[in-house]
Structure formats: C-alpha cells, structure tokens
Write a protein that binds this DNA or RNA. Structure first.
Lengths: 355, 355
DNA sequence: CTGAAAGCGCTTACAG
DNA sequence: CTGAAAGCGCTTACAG
C-alpha cells in the first residue's frame, strides 16, 4: 500500500466513522409519504388533533415509530413559541448548591420535555450577560437564577426580560418569585434535637455574621437554646472549627455538652479538634452540622448529624414554577421558604431516639 | 376595597409583573420596516453577506442595535441545520469530575455561540435514553459523554447517532474520540517530585485495583520509585488512609519517608492518621494526593500537594472537538491522554525546590 | 374524513 | 445595489 493510498484509506475510514453529516433525519414529509397521507394528516395523527379515521391515526403512528421519526423541536418551537428549554444560571463554581438544585430542576422538567442549559457565570457580569443573551437567542422558555447565598444577587440584571425568571438560593427582585430554604426552621430542628437528647449547654459556632442565613440560624438558635452565651461568628472553614474549640476549652467556665455548627466544614473541624483534645463525640458532647454535604458529613469521624436544606426539592419547585409562568399560568410573587430536614448520623448519640 | 376588587387588583398586579407573554420580540420584519429595507437586505446587512451600500449596512446594524434585535436561533437553526447547542451527558452525581469538564466545555464553546445542555443520568439507562432523545429532538450539534472513570461506559448507547459524540473521562467506543488524563504521567510527576525531595522509601496507597486508572498509576509508581513493596489497594475513602497507616506502622520493618496516595481523600486520611500517631507531615514524611479536589486538598492540615488532572482543559478540548466534528471538519479517532500537573502545597516540604 | 395553503422567523439563490 | 420568492420542518385554521 503506497503512502498516498494508505492515507486515502485512512481518510475514508474517518469519513465513514466520524462524518455523521450524511444520513439526514427523517422528516414529516418522509413519514407522510411512507404512510400515504398528507403531511397535515401525519401531523394531526401524531398530535392526536384533528379528525381522521381511527386506523389512519394508528397506522401513521405505527409507521412513525418504525421509521424512528421524531419531530424537529426547532420547527415546532418556531410555531409554538416554546423551545422546551430553560436556562439555569449560577455563580456557584463548586456546584455545592447548584448541582442538587439542577438535579431537581432537571428531574421536574424532564417529564415535560424541557431540557436545561447550565450556565456558570462565576461573578463575572460580562460572562453573565453573554450567557443570558445566548439563552435568549435560543428562545429559552424561562430562566432560573441560582447562587450560593440568599442575600447576594447574581452579577447580571434579569429584570425586564421577555421571559419568566425564578430565583433559587440567590437574591431576587422584590416582585419576583424566590425560593430559599427556611434557615430558622432548620436551625430549630438541630437545636431541638440536641435538647431532646438532653443537652443543656449548647454553643453555636458559625460563619460570617454578614450572611443573612447566619443571622437567621443564630436567632433561631438563641430562641430555642435560650443561651445567653454569644454566638461565635467566624469563617466557613474547618480551621475555624478548630480555633473555636481551642477558644472554648481555654476560656474559664463550664464546657458545653453540644455544639451546633453553621455548616459541615466547621463541624468537621470541631469534631477533629475535640478528638485531638480527647473529648469524645458523641459521648461527651454532641455536634450538629448544616448542609449535609455528603463528602464532608459522611467522612467525618463519627459521621455528622446535620441539617439538609433539601435543595433538590427546591430545584424541583423552581423548575415547575418557571414552567407554569412560561405557560402563562398565574404565579404569586414572593419569597418561598422551603423546610429543611435533619439527617441523623452518629455525631449526637442516642440515634434510637429518632423513632 | 371589596374582596372581589382586591382580588382583581391583585391579579392585575400579577399579570403586570409576571405575565411576560405580552411584549413580543422584535423580528427581522420589525427591523426591516424600521430601517426601510426589505427583510432580505436586513438579513444580509447583519450577516455581512450579499452586496449593498455601505451606509445601508451600517444603518441597518445601528437600528438593529437600537431596537435590541436578536435573531431567533430556532429560525436560523431550521435553515442552517445547526442549533448551536450541544449536550453534556454525565453519570457523575457529585459533579466532582463533571463540573470542571463542564466549565471547560462551556468556556470553549461560548465564543462560538454554543450553549450546553447538562443531563445528569446517574446510572439509569432509561433516564439516559430519555435525555438523549430530548437532546436529539432539540437538534443538538453534538454530544459529549462524560463520567467518573475511564474504564466504564455510560448506561446508554451513543453509537450510530446522527450527531457527533465525544467521550470525556468515560469509556468510549473503539472508533470514537475519547479524552482522558494521562494517569501514568501524573503518577510519575508525583513520585519524581518525592524523589527530588530526597525521599527514598515511598509507599503507594490507592483505590480498588479494578480501576484502570489505579493500575496505570501503580505501574508508573513502581517504575519510578523502583519499589519492591506491594502497592496497597483499598477504597476511595479517608478511612482507608487511616487503616493503611495503621497497617504500615504496626508491621515490622522500616517506615516509609513518603506516601503517594491514589486520591485526595485517601491522602487526607493518611495525613490525619499520621498526625494522630505523632508523625510529622512534611518533616518526617511527605504525602502526595491525586485529584486536587480543592475542598479536600485545601482543608487538609497541612494542605496537600497533589496531582491535578486539568479537567477544565480536557473539557475545553472535548468541546472544541465536537464542534469541529459538527462542522464537518475531519477529526482523527482515538484516545487522547492529556497531561496532569503537580500542585505544590505543604504536605511534602521544601516547596522552594519547585523553582 | 382528508388535504392544500399559509405561516412561524429567518437565509439564500436568483432576478432586476 | 436591492428585493421577491422559495424553503427549512413543522402546525393549524380552512376548504372540500
């Protein structure tokens, strides 16, 4: 085989394998021809509209299945003004919050034939703008804006768009629909659980006071725990958990029998620090986290009892809501707080209390 | 205000705020009318095609900008057979691998006006099938299949599709294009680094031998470290790191001066276990991880030196490749291994060596 | 009961 | 230099 021949052979192989531009899709014309009807009849048969002989409809449908005919969504969309597509905007790079939300959105909308564009815009306004325009060009039926905290806006203006917008886990405009978790209720769940276990001296170690969620959780903690001790604000890191334990154990006065942490990372730091001090979790002290971030909560020794914000459910509702709006159904604006749930693992002890 | 009135008022408020079905988009007809040209001229002006007076083109463009005209991608797509849309399929629920890949894909394609449908299919064949069909209906220009390990297929058949498919971090068909990281090179990077630091007794604690990546990394480790000691296979968890250290320190013989771990979770377990034994990292022993999973590598004390698979770059290349295929450019099939890089933090010591 | 025609919003030969 | 017409793949009044 000469070099040229070999090359030609190789190229034809590539063409055959990878050039998929050849076999064009079957259109409704092909279907109509195969079924021996007009394209209008074919269309009506498939959509269960119009009037026609029952067997005609059956036959068209059968042949459609046989041919593997699937209507071109772009053509349909041109008429119906529906793309069956929505956009999910997020500035949550890690995906810690966005992935569960996305899973819920996708899950809720798949049944309705809606697909989701995921657009990660970081905190870049230009990037956000570009993505929004790309989505609008593609005629998305709606947009879900999601983020990583409820008191910050995405770096892009979504008001006055021609499509409905729903906010999920990010701050929305006053007259919009916004979904967020009920931080106060979540915190109450945690502290009530600790009290039910007999804990009486509960400390709260949490993130920066600047976060709205932090203040909400702290307020609920104070209310349920009835503590006069100050909430310990810090950062969202394991290191803060270590430092907090250090502070608590080096200051004078009694030691707590429970620590309610603002997130799982802090809780992990707390648990590790306690172990290093020889304080036993959960025998000597109970620890509760927040977020139910599997990778953290599950790998902590012992695994963390923690508050789950049910973000998938939040995504599901957000998805159904944009859909409703896209279909013109009336939707009441406002903030909707979704309940959290407590996930019991081993960091509090006495799991059997759960029943 | 009577109840009925109040209701009516409230409803109109909702309508005004949330019913966006009113103001319809400006089409090329509106633009043409406003510019006083035919729609053909308007179209050609915008696309820099056809011939026309320079000022006509300028004027049309200016007016288009003023009106905020943006062509309907569905209409364009109907003609061009390009939707400027691709699908990213994944079974990686956590998003550990998919998110960086997604970021790269999105980043590479945004400039080309391509948006990405993200479809999380878990390991559910039916779900996968549904998503693929939804994507095909929407006329995606191509599909990227991505996963969490290179020796497993997604639970859905992507061969014989009418659109190009590229595999990223998941097993592809023999004649497809597949992107993966170069595990052997990554492992070499890690072990060579340890040797450069003067470490001579290097142990390898890794995941299940069933993983192809595990075997590749282990082979490279053996080759570079020249160890006769057996590789320690286990599971991808911190607990295995703890157990491995326990085993090493309780068996007879000399202790290692370095541990190369199969991923960051194991490395974290190893580092924690060493600290609990009073063995100092990095003074007494160096530890290297694999993955550069920020949440794990960054929070470990000390932070982990680890191998980064450059998944974003992998995504970028995968994106550009589907695009090329969608445009009919010839692409050579085969597996493409992308190089890893070493991220130096504090778990090995002597960082200044890096220069 | 079925089909021809118009049209969704664009682009692209083809006339003039 | 500019515009009328055809057409992408569908759906939906409207005739017959």
């Amino acid at each position: 085989m000469t070099s040229r021949l070999r090359k030609a052979f190789f190229f034809s192989l590539l063409e055959a394998k990878l050039d998929t531009s050849g076999n064009k899709r079957t259109t409704i014309h092909d279907l109509a021809a195969a079924a021996g009807v007009s394209i209008s009849t074919a269309s009506k048969a498939l959509n269960n509209t119009g009037r026609m002989g029952d067997e005609t409809r059956k036959r068209v449908k059968r042949i459609a299945t046989e041919m593997g005919f699937r209507p071109n969504a772009m053509a349909r969309g041109l008429l119906s003004k529906r793309s069956f597509t929505i956009g999910l905007l997020t500035n949550d790079t890690y995906g810690r919050f966005t992935l569960p939300v996305m899973a819920g959105v996708s899950d809720a909308l798949l049944d309705h034939g809606v697909s989701v564009f995921l657009c990660a815009i970081e905190d870049d306004p230009a990037l956000g703008q570009t993505h929004v325009e790309a989505m609008l060009d593609k005629q998305v039926d709606g947009i879900i804006a999601s983020g990583k905290r409820v008191d910050k806006r995405l770096p892009v203006d979504l008001s006055n768009l021609q499509v409905p917008v729903v906010y999920a886990f990010t701050e929305g405009t006053p007259d919009s629909v916004t979904f967020r978790s009920d931080d106060a209720q979540g915190a109450r769940l945690a502290v009530e659980w600790l009290r039910k276990l007999g804990r009486r001296h509960i400390v709260h170690v949490t993130g920066p006071e600047a976060f709205f969620s932090v203040r909400e959780r702290a307020a609920a903690y104070r209310e349920v725990a009835g503590e006069i001790e100050p909430v310990m604000y810090g950062i969202w890191a394991e290191s803060w958990g270590h430092e907090a334990v250090q502070r608590i154990w080096t200051r004078p006065g009694g030691k707590p029998d429970a620590i309610f942490c603002g997130n799982d990372q802090i809780a992990r730091g707390v648990v590790d620090a306690l172990r290093e001090r020889g304080v036993k979790v959960p025998q000597d002290i109970s620890v509760v986290g927040f977020d139910n971030w599997e990778i953290v909560a599950g790998q902590t020794r012992p695994p963390l009892t923690t508050v789950d914000m049910c973000l998938k459910e939040l995504g599901r509702q957000a998805g159904l809501t944009v859909l409703a709006m896209a279909e013109g159904r009336p939707v009441e604006p406002g903030v909707r707080k979704l309940p959290c749930r407590l996930v019991v693992r081993q960091s509090c002890g006495a799991e059997n209390l759960e029943e």
